[in-house]
């Protein structure tokens, strides 16, 4: 082993002059983007995992088109008209897929990084701030969600399941759903102690997935249940997407979107603070 020439080492022991200026400069960068850059680099090693995720919605849509759609026939759509079941259920599945993807990224992945990977410990030894970590994780979940949503819409369009030009807004709305659930999921994760606690995440997401009027219209429920379901965030997302894709658009959609946005912003704020509290002790 030969000793490397020390003069090559990137070490300048700077005098203190101009230090404050350098401190300021170093503090101003967008730390979240750099953590997102890291995730993108990790996924370069596993791009196939990333890309093959597109198949999941394809399987679901195919199965519904071939199977359940035939069994169910037509159901009452958002405008009151009868629509084929597959047209009815496809936008709901997009909403569910946006929710599940965001929840997965912001719960399992974040918990692993928080407890086992020590990723955030390493990151917070650098100028990156806790709030930037939260923003990066949610941003990353959205980037992934965007790819899947675009793929989903392409499949839907090619299967003839899109019936309105408003459907161009479906991808941004899927991102909004992803944002709300990623932020809430991440907030929940900061309170988790062990993997067993993830059953609580399932406890929240499974009923949402099953009962938020994804697979059948709200009208099958008794009135009291309907009121509860109408307040769930996934229901808002499902209705938003279904109305856009089937072309039953009205001003009420703005309120639904605002509801999801508020959930996302609140979750983002809390999770940023919680990560700081957990790691900077």
């Amino acid at each position: 082993m030969t000793a490397p020439p020390l003069s090559d080492l990137p070490l300048r022991m700077l005098p203190s002059a101009g230090r404050l200026a350098r401190l300021r400069q170093a503090a101003g960068g967008p730390g979240s983007l750099r953590l997102i850059e890291r995730h993108a680099r990790v996924y370069r090693h596993a791009w196939l995992v990333f890309a093959s995720g597109v198949f999941e919605p394809l399987f679901y849509l195919l199965s519904i088109g071939l199977g359940l759609g035939v069994l169910v026939g037509r159901v009452t759509g958002p405008g009151g008209q009868l629509v084929p079941y597959r047209d009815f259920v496809a936008p709901g599945l997009l909403a569910v897929s946006a929710m599940n993807g965001a929840m997965y990224d912001s719960t399992f992945n974040v918990f692993f990084r928080l407890k086992y990977d020590k990723l955030y410990e390493a990151v917070l030894a650098t100028p990156v701030r806790p709030a930037e970590v939260a923003l990066a994780e949610i941003g990353w979940a959205l980037i992934r969600g965007c790819l899947y949503a675009v793929a989903f819409m392409l499949v839907m369009t090619s299967l003839g399941l899109v019936h309105s030009p408003w459907a161009v807004l479906a991808v941004p709305v899927a991102l909004l759903i992803g944002f709300a659930f990623a932020a809430m999921g991440m907030t929940g994760t900061t309170f988790m102690k062990s993997w067993q606690d993830f059953d609580y995440i399932l406890l929240a997401s499974t009923p949402l997935f099953l009962f938020s009027a994804t697979f059948y219209p709200l009208s099958v429920y008794p009135r009291a249940v309907r009121v509860v379901v109408e307040w769930t965030p996934l229901y808002q997302g499902v209705v938003l997407l279904r109305d856009l894709v089937l072309g039953a658009v009205g001003p009420a959609l703005l309120w639904r979107a605002a509801y999801l946005a508020v959930l996302g912003v609140v979750g983002l704020y809390i999770s940023g603070r919680r990560i700081g509290k957990l790691l900077l002790v």
Partner: peptide
Amino acid sequence: RNGPAIRARLGVVPQEDTLDVEL
């Protein structure tokens, strides 16, 4: 108050390695 700015000028070798094992 200036944590991020100071951290920009520090090098840290923690007690347990926090290397990024996925990279």
